[in-house]
Design a binder for these strands. Structure first.
Length: 833
RNA sequence: GGGCGGUUAGCUCAGCCGGUUAGAGCACUUGCCUUACAAGCAAGGGGUCCGGGGUUCGAAUCCCUGACCGCCCA
């Protein structure tokens, strides 16, 4: 028997080289490409389209994309046909600003189609950066399935959705007070709002009754006095009921307004008397509509006051507020001001407090579908389950239909013209999509209603979510764009992966769209990830990314830099440490732990290789029943890990699967098993060849399974080792296309001998430590004392004598009197160094 | 004010549909250069499972209640 001294693996792993090797291999084999003709059930992933600029990506993004990808890899190994696209969001405001800045252009001097071309160009460049990063991270995306939310296919899908919903009567046009962003000068949907808390002042302002008596109201928005159209009190509030039917005069501005009753007015708030303006908040809108109040528009689209505000006209609302308070004080109409904590709705894009403005808009009617949508929310499988309630709460709290028009320049155009004479709507021809009505003519030459030949285009664009919400339809080519990969077989998609903060937007709107267009859910399941947090427990931000670059240009939050320093597998390993849906704190130290595992795996494989030599799994195979107790025990242990890992993955609990694998690999496989078999190779004269063959067979089998178990988490190092040691013996060209390791019924055994062996080994290891002797040094003598043990234990000890002797590494093993207790009752042990 | 999540070792986190003595990694202590790996191995110390009450033979786990942190919504 000749011992191998050279491994096929270098002594130290070079992760950069391993990664480059694997990338090359995966590209050559095309293993991540979707093949519609391949056998197997489709597994399709609807993953978030990031914005064009990759510079904002941090390790938190890497975390959530990696977590989703663990699941994808697991299913790929289970024979699922993976459809894994990556989209880019180059629609909407962030892109508009980014492109304006990048090209230093002014959108007023360009057309939408020219602007769009620039965006697509920018996206193509940005996509390269993303691709570089995501590939470096090992994401198994099929880059041929790329889409950009402003490309022709996506525009077509988005506009087709509009036309279809219009024809279904789901879309209507309405001229009503809408949520308005006075900085961006566009309307908003409810989902575009954030709420913030701020310090404000509640002012007591004196109106005059018909008899000249003072009527005091409380308001935080005195600048809306010129827009005041009524006063309200509670109909049961005896202080004011006598005023009902009378009028009051507004201070400074002088208009007279009616005094009305509404039981929703809280008599305990302020003075119990309140003013209604057009429009201060949604309650004002409600009363205005219900009671047919007058309209006094005082806040214009750009947030400045109109002429109705008299001397305050042209001022911004917050400036006017101060000036009007001063004027009220001078006029003696202000009787008090107190500080209050106020909750304000602001636009999530500009942080501007929202106003209500009268503007014609397109809406998708959703308020009548709440119950159906709640049913859909329940139908969907949520991982983790408790995230479902976030969607339910959002649906229950909906106040308005979905406003889908935006008064912005850039985006998907509304595919509509209006008759210049009668206002009749002319839809674009579906076959002609995508269209920009501003740059093209309507499909009819005369208005069907009035015969006029003059049309005006709708100059608005669609809400960016109008497009994002059809991502599953984009992927499944619902719009029938020729040449696109992906069809109805990938829809409904298997899983949507996303973070929790866009449940109310991306997730909600997508459910709405699929419910309306295909009368189904857009996906079977949804997997919601948490955030990556920085060392202080705050969400990792762009600022972290900018601030913490060291003198060498290294930034610990930059995923690409981290990958280069520690390896992609190491970063992925960190990402696998958080449980689904929960935030995970990032420490570079935790990435180093991943690195340790990668190195350990490499070394264990090297060791196995040294012992296996030219092992041939066919010729040198030893049947399970003929193997040593150590070997059978190892596989029996592995047989417990396999179903546990499978079950965990099926429930999207990648973290649990990884922990099971860690426990097995590190403490069972490395610390115990590899140590136990060394003696067979080190002192070959003490063993028959069969025991070494048994160990080789077991090593070969178990290491292969370990590679499979770790493959979703550590795709690079596992693939490399697979190629080195297993490729020659298996069909699969890549570990990642090989079958997920299955439990083996034959291995389902208990090995009582091993309980005895490990108890004695543990005790001897302890004695070595106490005696300050290395674990490998051969002891002169080990004494076993089984006088107090049960007969069957004593018999097992005797039967295992040779194994024990080898495991504890002693020259002589004798029975006698010993002092040190083991975990086995009545079995004692002592050593002589 | 409402909803959801969290609070477990010095740190980062598992465990939570009740059931051995509450776990892992890092950090710490002691020992060991050992023919895969010292980025390793062996042995060890460290816990009021946020507080209070309840259900139960039995609670980190279930129920009630309070505190604090985070996110979302009024």
């Amino acid at each position: 028997m000749q011992l191998e001294t050279e491994s096929r693996l270098p002594k130290e792993i070079d992760t950069a080289e391993v990664e480059a090797y694997c990338q090359r291999l995966w590209d050559e084999l095309g293993i991540y490409l979707y093949d519609p003709n391949e056998a197997g059930e489709v597994f399709s992933i609807d993953t978030p389209p990031p914005y064009v600029s990759a510079s904002h990506l941090h390790v938190g993004h890497a975390m959530s994309y990696a977590q989703a990808e663990f699941i994808v890899r697991y299913h790929r190994m289970n024979g699922r046909k993976i459809f894994y696209p990556m989209g880019f969001d180059d629609n909407g405001l962030p892109t508009e600003r980014y492109v304006e800045k990048t090209f230093k252009i002014n959108k007023s001097k360009t057309t939408r189609s020219e602007f769009r071309a620039l965006c697509l160009q920018t996206t193509t460049e940005g996509a390269k950066e993303y691709e570089k990063l995501w590939r470096a991270l090992g994401l198994s995306v099929d880059w041929n399935l790329r889409y950009s939310t402003i490309d022709d296919h996506c525009q077509r899908t988005s506009q087709k959705s509009f036309i279809e919903l219009f024809k279904l009567g789901r879309i209507y046009r309405s001229h009503e007070p809408v949520l308005w962003d006075p900085i961006l000068e566009t309307s908003l949907a409810q989902a575009d709002l954030e709420t913030i808390e701020r310090k404000s002042k509640l002012h007591d302002i004196v109106f005059k009754g018909v008899d000249g008596s003072p009527l005091t109201i409380s308001t935080t928005r005195p600048e809306l006095l010129p827009a005041c159209v009524a006063l309200y009190c509670n109909s049961k509030d005896a202080r004011y009921t006598h005023l009902l039917g009378q009028t009051a005069t507004v201070p400074l501005f002088g208009q007279t307004v009616p005094v009305l009753a509404d039981d929703d007015v809280d008599p305990a708030f302020g003075t119990g008397l309140m003013m209604v303006c057009t429009f201060g908040d949604s309650e004002d809108v409600r009363r205005w509509k219900r009671d047919g109040l007058g309209l006094r528009v005082v806040v214009s689209n750009n947030g400045r006051l109109t002429d109705l505000a008299g001397e305050f006209a042209g001022m911004k609302t917050d400036e006017a507020r101060g000036k009007i308070v001063t004027a009220l004080t001078e006029a003696g109409a202000l009787t008090g001001s107190k500080a209050v904590d106020q909750v304000v709705s602001v636009s999530d894009r500009s942080d501007a407090p929202v106003e209500f403005v009268m503007a014609p808009q397109w809406f998708i009617r959703v308020m009548d579908m709440k119950d159906e949508l709640l049913e859909r929310a329940k139908e969907l499988r949520w991982f983790p389950e408790w995230m479902q309630i976030r969607l339910e709460d959002w649906i229950k709290g909906l106040k308005y239909d979905w406003n889908i028009s935006r008064q912005r320049f850039y985006g998907v155009p509304v595919p509509v013209w209006f008759c210049a004479k009668c206002g009749e709507v002319v839809l674009a021809d579906e076959a002609a999509l995508p269209v920009d009505p501003v740059e093209s003519k309507p499909p009819v030459s005369a208005c069907a209603k009035c015969g006029s030949a003059e049309f005006v285009p709708d100059a608005d664009v669609l809400d960016t979510w109008m497009t994002s919400s059809v991502s599953p339809l984009i992927n499944s080519n619902w719009a029938g764009t020729p040449g696109r990969i992906g069809d109805a077989s990938v829809y409904p998609m298997t899983v949507r992966v996303q973070a929790f903060e866009i449940i109310r937007t991306w997730l909600f709107y997508t459910v709405v769209k699929s419910h309306l267009h295909t009368k189904s859910l857009p996906w079977e399941s949804v997997m919601i990830s948490g955030w990556g947090l920085n060392e202080n427990g705050k969400k990792i931000s762009k600022r972290d990314l900018e601030q913490y670059t060291d003198a060498n240009g290294y930034n610990r939050y930059d995923p690409y830099a981290v990958i280069q320093k520690f390896g992609a597998d190491s970063l992925r390993y960190w990402a696998s440490g958080g449980s689904l849906g929960h935030d995970l704190r990032y420490n570079e130290k935790d990435v180093q732990i991943g690195r340790k595992l990668v190195v350990k795996l490499w070394n264990a494989a090297r060791f196995a290789d040294l012992q296996m030599g030219a092992y041939d799994p066919v010729k040198d195979f030893v049947p399970f029943a003929a193997r040593t107790p150590e070997d059978r025990w190892l596989l029996a242990e592995l047989n417990k890990v396999l179903p546990a890992a499978k079950k965990a993955f099926e429930g999207y609990s990648y973290h649990e699967a990884r922990e099971e694998t860690d426990r097995f690999f590190w403490s069972v496989f490395c610390d115990d098993y590899l140590e136990l078999i060394k003696d067979r190779f080190w002192t070959p004269d003490n063993y028959v060849e069969q025991t070494r063959a048994s160990a080789r067979t077991t090593l070969f089998e178990s290491l292969r399974i370990v590679l499979g178990l770790y493959a979703p988490f550590l795709p690079f190092v596992t693939e490399y080792l697979y190629q080195q040691f297993y490729k020659g013996h298996e069909q699969a060209a890549s570990l990642h296309k090989s079958a997920w390791p299955q439990a083996n019924a034959e291995w389902d055994v208990t090995v009582p001998e091993m309980e005895v062996l490990s108890a004695i080994l543990r005790a001897v290891r302890g004695l070595r430590t106490t005696a300050k002797v290395s674990q490998t040094r051969r002891l002169a003598k080990v004494t076993l004392d089984v006088t107090g043990a049960k007969p069957e234990i004593a018999a097992t000890v005797e039967r295992m004598q040779a194994s024990i002797s080898a495991a504890v590494r002693t020259t002589e093993l004798v029975y006698g009197t010993a002092e040190t207790a083991t975990d086995l009752e009545g079995v004692r042990v002592d050593i002589v160094v």
